[in-house]
Design a protein around this nucleic acid. Structure first.
Lengths: 312, 312
DNA sequence: ATCTTGCGATAGATTTTATTTATGAAGTAG
DNA sequence: CTACTTCATAAATAAAATCTATCGCAAGAT
């Protein structure tokens, strides 16, 4: 028995005519005849009385047709369930987000999103990039928000925005008076950076083209977990650090003189939403992407293809 | 999507191991892998997380598996429904029976049958042979009880018993004093027979090898519908008639001297239960056959293959 | 580290099944 | 009787499922 055969008998029941039923099934009449005979043989029951004109189901056939309809309905449900998973903007959504984004990005979109989708529950956790990819693969989280590219197979990256890097410079530094700076202007011996585990640390090191271990060289103190801490260190002890745009935007206007833009090509990082290839709730990813982008300050919303920049 | 694929994913869910699941399905592991991939592709949902050890269904997969089980259960119901139809000794059973059997045969088996099978409802109607075959084909009746062979294709004959013919002879007849008679002894000019429409009439005509129409020849009066009437006519006006064994057995013992047996080969008629080839309630036919045969008077129950007889 | 082992995926050949075209058989209306 | 309608059958073809053989990857063992 197979689902096709059930489709066929139901078509014959509906049309009461083999040839027309066949047409409706997009097959030829002999196909229908043979498949129905095969089913009747397997079940050891005649389903149709072909001697009646038009054909009629037998008494046993009526029972078979009833059951066939039930089976096919349940089969269609299979596809419906997938579709509903896709469409569903509700239920719990577990999201992992890196610590260098969480406090600056979440305030923009979380509240409006929850207000717009009342049946949606967000469960957001800070974790580093590697933990996010592992948790995704274990289905412990549904989505991640982090800096791409990851180059992980099985994981889809949905771009959200590109975020410029800024230098945050103490007024005692030589480059304090420059309006635009270059990566070469950064004195790595006076650079405060985040502790290990943050991808942002690696990106800054890349920016400075420093691959050797700072600690080993002993030239540098490493600041603790947050940009706030690093900037405080710069304020008190001098030196400089690098911060991403969302952090820069959060700073009070009167502190902005410490911030230095890079001259083109501006270094940026690509922030993306990531999901498993197989993540079933496709629609929710679209929604989330749109809502996040929409909620961003206008500086980040602009299309940046035209600008010269360099992805770190 | 097909039922096979659903069996496969359920096997993998049960075994949590592709190779063992494949074995349980009596196919090889690549078959299973490919069919499951095909299903996942069609549904656009990953059902299993193969990176886990042992394999585990994904969240979406759990939903798919649940639905797959539902579908397969309904599919199995299809076969169960057929089996139940076969087994069922209950519900209404519409039976057609010829008038020359009804009053003599029904008393034997109907009451015991209904007592034995409380959920069985019999709806028995007298009708002639042709009406029975037509009604069978229209499924207006489920079974027929009549004299075979019918030679109708699509209709199965289940033999019940063979019934001897007897001559019922007025004492004024020349053959009254014979103990055994031959078909040639019958004086067709003095023969009362049933009206047209009864198959028994035709059988008697065959027995006497008379194929011409009696009425046209004007030699004969035709008795009305029942053997009682015919025998009364013989009693009052002389002449003779032919009656089947069940009628003979019902006669009071003191009237039996009018009954003459035929000498071998004894003419008999074959009484059978008939059903459509496709009649689904097979078991009930077996039961009915056994119950009818068992309820018969011992004279009819005996196996008669050893006796010399001629089927009319 | 390197080697083995276990597990699932992949590729190509083969078998099985479904489908098609062409035709037959049986019943029905003109 | 003839033409027509309707479903069944047969042989050829197309599509699919399945098999054998092999690969790739990850986890433990040496």
């Amino acid at each position: 028995m197979n689902l096709q055969q059930l489709e066929y008998i139901i078509a014959v029941d509906n049309h009461r005519h083999f040839a027309r039923a066949a047409e409706a099934c997009f097959v030829t009449q002999p196909t229908l005849s043979m498949m129905i005979q095969k089913l009747e043989e397997e079940l050891q029951v005649k389903i149709f009385d072909r001697s009646r004109q038009p054909v009629e189901p037998t008494k046993a056939g009526v029972l078979m047709l009833q059951q066939a309809r039930k089976i096919l309905n349940e089969s269609r449900r299979m596809h419906e369930i997938v579709a509903e998973l896709n469409e569903q903007i509700s239920g719990r959504l577990n999201i992992g987000i890196i610590p260098t984004l969480a406090p600056y990005l979440l305030p923009y979109f979380v509240k409006p999103l929850l207000e717009k989708y009342a049946d949606l529950e967000l469960n957001i956790e800070e974790m580093n990039t590697q933990t996010i990819t592992e948790s995704l693969k274990n289905e412990q989280i549904d989505l991640g928000i982090l800096v791409t590219p990851l180059q992980e197979k099985g994981i889809q990256e949905v771009p959200l925005f590109t975020e410029k890097f800024y230098a945050y410079v103490a007024d005692s530094e030589g480059i304090y008076n420059k309006e635009y700076i270059l990566p070469e202007d950064l004195d790595v011996n006076r650079l405060w950076i985040l502790e290990e585990g943050h991808c942002f640390r690696t990106q800054v090191l890349n920016l400075c083209e420093i691959r050797r271990d700072f600690e080993v060289e002993g030239r540098f103190k490493i600041a603790a977990g947050s940009f706030e801490t690093v900037m405080n260190l710069v304020d008190h002890y001098g030196g400089l650090t690098i911060v991403p745009e969302l952090v820069a935007l959060k700073m009070p206007k009167n502190n902005r003189q410490c911030l230095k833009s890079f001259s083109a090509p501006v270094p940026v990082r690509q922030v993306s939403l990531v999901r498993l290839d197989s993540f079933p709730r496709r629609k929710i990813v679209d929604v989330l992407q749109k809502e996040i982008v929409q909620s961003l300050p206008k500086e980040l919303k602009v299309k940046r293809e035209a600008q010269r920049m360099i992805h770190i």
